[in-house]
Design a protein around this nucleic acid. Structure first.
Lengths: 266, 266
DNA sequence: CGACTATTTGATAGGACTCAACCTCCGTGG
DNA sequence: CCACGGAGGTTGAGTCCTATCAAATAGTCG
């Protein structure tokens, strides 16, 4: 059930068997949620942590006049709240885009998990790094790229993210969202998203029928989008796994421990 | 020297005298940096944490073809690296926009500070929440707002942020950056930034001479920008200041220690 | 099958970009 | 003290990308 999460976290930071077990066995409640349903409402008090298991969800913000901007996607394996269980409220809402399955851990359960499995805390933390990194890339997308580039970039990102949780088949994946959602993600009008999509199809870059998107020419799509998947993989941000000068300090310190290692391991 | 930081953190989460002292007395080196100088280079190995004390800096990303997007501003009191001292590398660069003064803490110093003053760790952490919240608001800005709205919003944000660290005089503040920087921030061309700025002046909303910006009609500017300062103040996100379950737990944990505190407290 | 919702198409308008030139302010140096 | 050079700011003209408006088509679900 929570396989995508396990897979994702394990990629970020390899988890011990104990940690995997803990996650698998933690109390949780499964919810099936209809499309266009708020999971977390801006300003509301939070009670637990949600994990998207199946389907797409998003964080979004509304302007007083009704304009909507989607600020991130929550794909299978993504935590809706990440570390937000520390905040009572959030400044944005989270809603499903498609029909979705969500696993909910109570605040208590999560804190207990983290307490007993520091590695999990680390992994959660890393996943927020990725989220922030994606956010920065989205800023570049909205600020600098043209409609064609934006859409291409988003498609590339989705492909890589879904692939990392085993939700692709070859170069295809389900894209259970509407063009209006894409528009609110890319800062474009629906009409223009539609035409841009047609352009991608015309150029034999992708296929999109029903809710299945197939990338016909990934390399070309990446080139157009200037897409470099590094930002999705913090592991790659490290030069390699060789200790850094800054780290020697820690390696040297000895009594000092887990805490130090923890920090580094992050 | 680090007064702006103290002031900011104290607003986020009130600091104890001990914590303030620790910060004030921590070893640090002061650097004066010329405009347009990289402080942190994408992909480079990190060694310490930088704090902007005076002047403006920014995080930015470059596209292969040279387009630049500024993804956040670092104003006086802002930490360039926040928790990034845990990562060896970052996916973006940080550069000064104006002449700036930067205080540098070594990795060791920072870890020591955090170790001994969990409250500081918490405060740093909170400050990253604000940063993320700002990032989301910027996404809305780039995705949904028109040029006039974007610029107005950015000006409002700067005003509120600078005001919170005592860097304003009345409704004026120094804006030591170039229109080209604004353009790369707002996803607009320099020419259009220029014209939009003129529009704001024509409408008697702001004044901008030399490097000093004065807001003549804050209320109107906020209305145009649909600016709501809440996102800058996580305190407001909490229902009140009653102790939270999460915190009780955190305070309570005892044997497992620093490691836990590190993770949780941060 | 009917009522929606989503996608597509056509036509038109407009916001923002580009190109190119000009101006203004400063710091430097002869 | 003024000439020079460069960076930043300003203007004008023309174009293009993207938005809007409106309507038709296709899909979906009960």
């Amino acid at each position: 059930m929570i396989a995508p999460l396990l897979r994702k976290l394990d990629t970020l930071i390899s988890l011990s068997d104990g940690e995997k077990h803990a996650l698998l066995n933690a109390d949780n409640a499964t919810r099936h949620v209809e499309p266009r349903t708020d999971i977390v409402v801006e300003g509301a008090v939070r009670d637990g942590v949600n994990l998207v298991v199946e389907g797409f969800a998003c964080r979004y913000k509304l302007l007083p006049d009704g304009r909507r901007q989607i600020v991130s996607y929550l794909l299978p394996g993504d935590l809706c709240d990440a570390r937000m269980f520390l905040l009572d409220r959030v400044d944005h809402s989270v809603a499903t885009l498609s029909r979705a399955t969500v696993v909910v851990w109570s605040r208590h359960t999560i804190l207990d998990l983290i307490e007993k499995n520091p590695g999990l805390a680390r992994a959660f933390w890393w996943s927020t790094f990725v989220e922030e990194s994606i956010g920065r890339e989205w800023l570049v997308n909205l600020g600098q790229r043209t409609a064609l580039e934006r859409l291409s970039h988003l498609i590339c990102e989705m492909f890589f993210r879904l692939d990392s949780v085993g939700k692709t088949r070859g170069h295809s994946f389900e894209l259970p969202i509407t063009q209006a959602d894409l528009a609110d993600t890319l800062g474009l009008s629906v009409v223009h998203v539609n035409r841009t999509l047609q352009e991608l199809r015309r150029d034999r870059l992708v296929t999109l029928s029903g809710k299945v998107l197939t990338i016909l020419n990934l390399k070309m799509l990446q080139t157009i989008a200037m897409f470099d998947p590094d930002y999705l993989n913090p592991r790659a941000w490290r030069p390699n796994d060789a200790p850094q000068p800054a780290n020697e300090h820690y390696e040297a310190a000895s009594t000092e421990e887990r805490a130090q290692r923890r920090v580094k391991g992050f």
